[in-house]
């Protein structure tokens, strides 16, 4: 396993979509390869940050929320 293989397989590795033998090879490689450790850690963190951004959205601007509520009262609320 070379560094370029890690680069190519990193997404499947993080998504746990690789064969266990290939995972083992990756883990053996990154154990002794400092740039690859940093690469895998930062890729993992990148995915985590986007996961978190989805789960913790900023509040909707007040005028957008007001507009939505008025729209729904007008178009969805039963008479």
């Amino acid at each position: 396993m070379k560094c370029t293989d890690i680069l190519e397989k990193i997404s499947d590795y993080l998504d746990k979509e690789l064969d266990p033998d290939i995972c083992k090879e990756i883990e053996n490689h990154i154990h002794d390869c400092e740039p690859c450790i940093a690469f895998v850690n930062t890729m993992r963190k990148t995915v985590e940050l986007f996961n978190k951004a989805g789960r913790e959205p900023a509040p909707v601007p007040e005028h957008v929320s007001d507009k939505l509520m008025n729209f729904l009262k007008k178009n969805a609320k039963p008479e």
Partner: peptide, 21 residues
């Protein structure tokens, strides 16, 4: 450009923005 891995990589994965974004 995903074809090569840079030789020096800063590991920022322990950044403190973990707790709350």
């Amino acid at each position: 450009n995903g074809s090569e891995l840079p030789r020096e990589i800063m590991d920022w994965s322990q950044n403190p923005s973990d707790q709350r974004m």
